[in-house]
Every structure is written in C-alpha cells, then in structure tokens.
Amino acid sequence: MNGPLSVATIVVALVLAAWLLLRAALNRAPSRFDLLATAVLGALVAVLVLVAVVGLFGDHRPSDTATFGGYLITTIAFAPVAIYLARMEPTRWGNLILGVACLVLPVLVLRLQQIASVTVA
C-alpha cells in the first residue's frame, strides 16, 4: 500500500486536479481529454486497489479490515462516479466535479495507507 504506485497515484491526481480546476475557472466544459485523463487516473486507482485487495490475503492484514474494505470500495468507485456526473454536466461545473474528485482521491489513498499501517501480526 505504501509503494511507488500510491505515490504516483497521488501525484497524478494532484496534477490533474490543478488542470481541471483551471479548466473550470476558465469556464470550459469537460473535453474528451479531460474525461479520458480522469478515466486514466481511475484505472491507476483501480490497479492500486487491486494490489491492496491481493495484499489482504497476505501476512500483513490491516487490523481494521472492515474500514479498510469500505475505503477500498469508495476509492475504486470515486473516479467512475465523478465521470458519470461530469458527463451529465457539460458546463464548467462538470470540470469542477472532476477536479474535486481528483482532490479527494489523494486523501482517500493517504487514509488507506494509514489504516494499512496498523496490521495484525
């Protein structure tokens, strides 16, 4: 959970968030690129979640497994829900939805790391 993959996810999410918030500030509706970039981030997050799920069957299971699972489900669903809502909103607000999602995702990843760091021996 604490590898280069989560660092990459956080960095990509923050860069994308800056871009999307700028697009919203400039009054631009989500373009195909904006939606695709968010989808790519979603795919990255999905890989991260898959790795974490595989890790659940290993030796270092987080002691708060239920909370960890809840966060995993929330995290993997985040980008798809944001893209779904943004596609219904072809205005600047669509980009704001995507931008907010990209701001929350790093928080979710950090929370996952926190929960994962408390393991059952």
Partner: peptide, 20 residues
C-alpha cells in the same frame, strides 16, 4: 451550452457539484 439559463434546475450546474 456554456451559460446557465436563469430558470435552470436546482440539481444542475453548481447544484450537481454540491450533489457530488
């Protein structure tokens, strides 16, 4: 449409961001 009509619904525009 780039601009919101004045009678747009509660659940569109910024309302959709709030919903999220």
């Amino acid at each position: 449409a780039r601009t919101r009509p004045a009678d747009a619904a509660l659940n569109t525009g910024l309302g959709r961001v709030l919903l999220f």
